[in-house]
């Protein structure tokens, strides 16, 4: 009955009109095929929250259940496609990812928890997608994959999945990461678009409340690429762009400096949460 009441209020509510509807993260624990997943943890120093919550805790029980069993998780189709790509020769050098990195379960373990990292060559942070492109162009004699194409999401999901359960742990002491973190923080708190919303408006100030029927989470990124019930496998920069579109602002390009800074900052905001890739969300 409580759920029904909440739904009634939610359906009647609009973000602008109704008073706050509080709906806290659920009290539940996640294990994926026996791997314990940290879905709540103490925030790192300097964080606006005391406790960090995975977006998993803001979903309905049916959606939460889809994450528990890797077989039932539709995102695992993408992970398997990514595995096939890992072993596929691409480019003129006759190499696959596996040629150099061999067994991803060994070589890629931890990678998903530590990116973005500092890239000395470009003097910028680099994420998994761009690291794949770097390998493709510099080592494999292949073309860089365009955003969200050519298996980029699948390969990224496969690589990040190797860190399932490991806590997110970025190293901000590398290179100039700290100033990119600052830049990302600016992006996070800057109101944009016709709706005049910053990331923080929804995911910090209104965290736990409802926008119509959407239960606002902390906007953690530990499960990306994520499988959305709405639209299937969804990459982080696609989600950034979607959110920004919803504020009715011009969308920055994927992997632009603004979004790379944002990825750096937002990833830090999830420090200590487990990598959940591919998470299942609404």
């Amino acid at each position: 009955m409580k759920r029904l009441l909440i739904a009634g209020v939610v359906l009647a509510a609009t973000f602008a009109g109704a008073g706050p509807v509080l709906a806290d993260p659920v009290d539940d624990t996640l294990e994926i095929d026996g791997t314990p997943i940290i879905t709540r943890t103490a925030a790192p120093e300097g964080h606006p929250f005391d406790e960090l919550y995975s977006g998993w805790l803001f979903r309905e029980s049916e959606t939460r259940d889809l994450s528990r069993d890797s077989f039932e998780n539709p995102g695992m189709i993408a992970v398997e496609d990514g595995e096939a790509l890992w072993n596929t020769v691409m480019g003129t050098e006759g190499k696959s990812c596996a040629t150099c990195h061999e067994d991803a379960a060994v070589s890629m373990k931890g990678v998903g928890a530590k990116f973005p990292k500092w890239d000395a060559d470009s003097q910028k942070p680099i994420n998994v997608e761009l690291q794949i492109n770097k390998c493709l162009t510099e080592q494999m004699g292949a073309e860089a994959l365009p955003f969200n194409k050519g298996g980029q999401q699948e390969l990224t999901a496969y690589i990040k999945h190797q860190s399932l359960g490991l806590p997110v742990e970025m190293d901000l002491s590398q290179g100039d990461m700290q100033s990119w973190w600052e830049k990302g923080k600016d992006v996070y708190y800057t109101r944009t678009g016709q709706l005049n919303l910053a990331c923080a408006s929804c995911h910090e100030t209104a965290m736990g409340k409802m926008i119509r029927a959407d239960h606002l989470s902390q906007g953690q990124v530990n499960g990306f690429p994520t499988y959305r019930l709405k639209s299937g496998l969804t990459s982080l920069h696609q989600r950034f762009r979607g959110c920004i579109r919803d504020t009715r602002a011009e969308q920055p390009k994927a992997f632009s400096d603004d979004l790379m800074a944002l990825e750096t900052y937002v990833t830090w905001r999830g420090t200590g949460l487990s990598v959940e890739t591919p998470s299942v969300r609404q």
Partner: peptide
């Protein structure tokens, strides 16, 4: 089954 309308776009 109640089908909710998302707030985000």
């Amino acid at each position: 089954v109640k089908v909710t309308i998302g707030g985000c776009g």
